[in-house]
Design a binder for these strands. Structure first.
Lengths: 330, 330
DNA sequence: ACAAAAAATGTAATCGATTACATTAATAAC
DNA sequence: GTTATTAATGTAATCGATTACATTTTTTGT
């Protein structure tokens, strides 16, 4: 494989000039730049990036840690990250942590070992050292830690959730159940607080029997519904993501509880399938693309210390489709 | 940041010994190994992998090129790849090519520039040079090129498709429409051939009005259905993936064509949502996890030239759920 | 046309881990 | 106890691109 020396010899210049022709073309005369370029073509030269990284102490690569590549929710976030990364000459590499801290750690090692410059984490399932403010450029998107100083980009889970319940109350529901995510997750705590606050504002009490939890998978929504159905007579159900909402909708169908006539269901995320289910799913839309873009921009700030990187809160929107209907007591 | 020299000084040994303690521990005495290890801990040493890669001419990293991270179909394939990679001390990095050859090229460059050792491509949207047998370790999974010598792992699309249509014929359907994928894709050609052959075996002629094509997205299935519905009276519909099948199912609902009573629908892939739709989707299951595992194993063969890497064809299975029902003419 | 400033290029050190080869220490063989 | 073997360690070159600094060439100003 050709290296700078070969190119230099072929072009009749020094290795320094070859290097400059690649990375600082403005510092090389038009004429020699052309000579170098054709020499590079002639011997099929590709620079060895390990060598460059070694010398430069950077890699122009960012790692995105996903807890679960199978969750479509992350797709557009990643797209947004890629758009901004590309504009800034960064490569994006996706690491699926499969919800395992150990696996996430392996990706963080890529930064420690200089194979990547920074991390955007879409999961809070990270090793303790990260929370303790280890010196690694990292931005969290969607998720966050309580009281830990990692810059984040996210939504206002509390308000989004509160608005959804407000809407259900508005259209006459009083018995509103809820399928949460894992309650050790701060965003789930926030969503549950929104749910509780909305009920309290309507002078309704939160009934623990109306609440069950899942792990964001289709199946967990399905089985949580079956458990809830036995213990609580609900007219509406709020699920902490669309996948669980679909699982619950399926389960409701199986017990003959028609959606939305007998049961209203609201999801969270607005995944692509949400408008293709029958009935189409009412859900809370997150600005995934914008979250991704902002996260990458924030990471660039962290990397270049341009300004103290801050938290960003982006807006959500309740999309009313056909899985919800107004309720009036008979 | 500490480097081998620092560790060496701290442990009172040479850099060579430090290096050996890391990568060939059996060549170092028990005693010095311990000394080195505690010295590494003491100064918080992480080896600079760029330096190692530079010297070793390898990166222990493989790139997986996905055409679309939003397509859940790839999730378990990636899991399978990761399982085998981990066993062999390889890192897996996912690259979303967004169906763009240019983007795929950027990932291929990672190999040329020694940042990755090989590629598993889940898309055939690759630059021409790859097809021309460029000297890059690459394995294709699911997709393939006609007449190009890249090792592949895939299913028998022709037979899988033929079996699905055979089943529809068996349960009495005669007017079977089809929503294909992009017809410049060899796997789509194979599936369409299976569809045609099954019809021919039953002495039915393939009617071009019964065929439309999509791009594997929910929406394309939805709009293809609406086009088909205007021009062809079908009692069954075969879609080349589950996402289009769901889109079509939604469209069928909108025109009042009940599934499965008035229209049977078959998908392809068995994505996680397929058992949570109403009705649950009959579909062709692919062994995604196994495809991924085999692809990674094949890539290891390619990398180490252990034996001529071959093509592998894995089995599929028709999963009959509730979106299909038998048809009898009135 | 000449000095001064600016632009272009070259020389060689550098990044940090690895490893061929050389040397020393430990063990085995007789 | 001496030599032959083997194990452990050290020395220094190496991977390939970058860049500080030095030198040469070109441009500018008068």
């Amino acid at each position: 494989m050709a290296n700078v020396k070969d190119v230099a010899k072929l072009a009749g210049v020094s290795t320094a000039t070859v290097s400059r022709a690649m990375t600082h073309p403005e510092k090389v005369s038009e004429k020699t730049r052309k000579k170098v370029q054709s020499a590079m073509l002639e011997c099929g030269f590709s620079p060895n990036v390990s060598a460059r990284n070694l010398r430069r102490c950077e890699s122009k690569t960012v790692i995105v840690i996903l807890p679960d590549i199978a969750n479509q929710f992350f797709a557009d976030i990643v797209r947004g990250i890629q758009i901004i990364a590309k504009k800034n000459d960064y490569k994006v590499l996706l690491g699926d942590s499969v919800h395992a801290v150990e696996q996430a750690n392996a990706y963080i090692d890529l930064v420690k070992t200089k194979q990547a410059d920074g991390i955007i984490s879409l999961t809070s399932e990270l090793p303790e050292e990260v929370k303790e403010g280890i010196n690694i450029p990292i931005v969290m998107a969607c998720e966050y830690f309580e009281n830990f100083p990692v810059p984040t980009v996210r939504i206002d889970n509390y308000t989004a959730s509160k608005n959804a319940i407000d809407y259900l109350l508005d259209i006459g529901h009083k018995r509103i159940a809820c399928i949460t995510g894992p309650m050790d997750n701060p965003i789930c705590v926030a969503r549950k607080n929104g749910y509780r606050q909305s009920l309290e504002n309507a002078s309704l009490e939160l009934d623990e029997l109306a609440i069950d939890s899942g792990d964001f998978s289709f199946h967990s929504g399905y089985s949580a519904f079956h458990r809830l159905y036995k213990q609580y007579k609900m007219t509406a159900l709020f699920c902490f993501n669309d996948m669980m909402a679909l699982g619950a909708m399926r389960a409701a169908f199986e017990v003959g509880l028609n959606v939305p006539e007998k049961l209203s269901i609201i999801g969270f995320d607005d995944l692509p399938f949400a408008q293709y289910t029958t009935p189409q799913l009412t859900t809370i839309q997150q600005p995934q693309l914008q979250i991704g873009k902002t996260a990458m921009q924030t990471l660039l700030h962290v990397l270049f210390d341009e300004k103290a990187a801050q938290d960003t809160i982006l807006p959500t929107q309740l999309l009313v489709r056909s899985s919800t209907a107004s309720y009036s007591e008979k």
